[in-house]
């Protein structure tokens, strides 16, 4: 996947147009010409101009020499995309599962899956996941009083 400054600039311009459009409908302070929309209007206008400038200057500067691969331009490898997706999936899984199966089991799955993918080793990943989930529940749930959902299983209840 490659994403050039031209594409980013155009994307920013599109976002700023939407933001500007929405901000123009925000109400003013009664009796004044400014209000809730003033600040977002200024920001989205400048952002749009910057986005356009980025896109245009990227097109103008494009030459065989400047097109050579830079680290940011390097295409993503399949392995990197898989790693990215699994790390991104971890909080999403937590949001979905924590209230259904509880903090402990969700945390075990999150750490285990990440560890298997990034570190490797079934047994050591399992041990890491169990130790990590137990400690975080005891520290945050017990000592700091964060209301971590219990649902199916809780290490604090097991420990009494």
């Amino acid at each position: 996947m490659r994403l050039s400054d031209t594409v980013i600039g155009c994307g920013l311009f599109a976002v700023s147009v939407i933001a500007f459009q929405l901000a123009s409908s925000f109400p003013s302070v009664p009796g004044m010409r400014f209000g809730a929309g003033t600040f977002p209007l200024v920001i989205s206008a400048v952002l749009g101009a910057c986005g356009l400038f980025l896109a245009v200057s990227s097109i103008l500067q494009r030459s065989p020499r400047t097109q050579s691969a830079t680290p940011s331009d390097a295409p993503w490898r399949l392995n990197e995309v898989a790693n990215l997706l699994i790390v991104m999936a971890a909080p999403l899984f937590y949001i979905f599962a924590a209230s259904r199966v509880g903090f402990f089991l969700t945390s075990v799955v999150v750490v285990f899956m990440l560890s298997i993918r990034l570190w490797g080793g079934l047994l050591r990943s399992a041990v890491l996941a169990l130790v990590c989930a137990s400690l975080t529940e005891v520290i945050f749930g017990g000592m700091f009083g964060v209301p971590l959902p219990k649902v199916l299983f809780s290490i604090r209840e097991l420990l009494g």
């Binding site: 990034l118 570190w119 490797g120 971590l148």
Partner: peptide
């Protein structure tokens, strides 16, 4: 580092939630 990263993800999740 790889093992630490897995742990940091969990801490980040709890930190944001807390």
């Amino acid at each position: 580092r790889a093992a630490l990263m897995s742990v940091i993800v969990l801490i980040a999740i709890i930190g944001a939630f807390a």
